[in-house]
Design a protein around this nucleic acid. Structure first.
Lengths: 138, 138
DNA sequence: CGTTACGCTGACGTTAACGTCAACTGCTCT
DNA sequence: AGAGCAGTTGACGTTAACGTCAGCGTAACG
């Protein structure tokens, strides 16, 4: 028989190995993120079990990284997504930060469009300048 | 009377201080980029003079950084923009890299759209949960 | 019952992208 | 001539984001 936790496979609590496989990260990374308070897995004894919340946050973390944000910037933005139990001032601060991020991201999107257009132009010009070696024409 | 060109080509050759002011970077950064072969200013004696080409490249470098690319990734992509004097194999390689970057950037754009939409939703929900203008004394 | 195998905790190493500092040089102005 | 700068070259320091390794615990497998 394959090793299988008993009847309690509610899949809401994910062990570290599964997390690593699912998100393509190392254990070190997850422990590092926990240390930085980006994740907060529960403990069974000494072992970590990641929650649905952790998985959602990790998705956002990795996405943020791809956009070039630092972990600290990400951590602040993340708070918006589940800061339901804080006081008004904190929530307002979170909204403020989120609006800033939003502006940055929209600017980034605009710049990205320009960059993509430019690169396309340059690429087309570059490909036109020399015969593409045996590439099927359309 | 040493040689002294009075009518200098100031428009094309920019000293380091002007570069720093124009692009909001430090001298150290420009020297660092030169060491990494991202820039190649000409020398007058020991001093650097940045060309039009350097300015164009620096624009792309800083833009690339905002997108989260590393300097090395940027350097490779940059080659597409002025690798006119290389052999066919090199140009082809440059095009290949550029196409990869392009794909990455388009994926990034798509993901950015999603992220912006999500953040907007979350922000709207968060702002709806409590009055923004002033705290409702409930 | 021993031995993999996975997981944990320090603790130190690494890489990228600069910052900082010291010592020197060559103009320019007075 | 001297002072004041802008600029240069090492050389070492710093921060973020992990990698790597040693030493230990424990749970299951054969």
């Amino acid at each position: 028989m394959t090793k299988r936790p008993r009847t309690e496979l509610q899949s809401d609590l994910t062990p570290i190995s599964d997390m690593c496989a699912a998100f393509d990260v190392t254990p070190r990374t997850l422990r590092f993120y926990e240390a930085k308070e980006l994740l907060s897995p529960v403990r069974v004894g000494t072992r970590r079990l990641f929650t649905r919340r952790d998985r959602a946050r990790l998705t956002l973390i990795l996405r943020g990284k791809r956009f070039g944000f630092s972990l600290e910037e990400i951590r602040q933005t993340l708070d918006l997504y589940d800061r339901t139990g804080s006081d008004a001032a904190q929530r307002q601060r979170a909204c403020e930060i989120a609006r800033e991020r939003l502006a940055i991201m929209e600017a980034q999107r605009a710049e990205l469009d320009v960059a993509i257009a430019e690169l396309k132009t340059e690429l087309a010009a570059s490909e036109a300048r020399f015969p593409v070696t045996h590439r099927a024409a359309e």
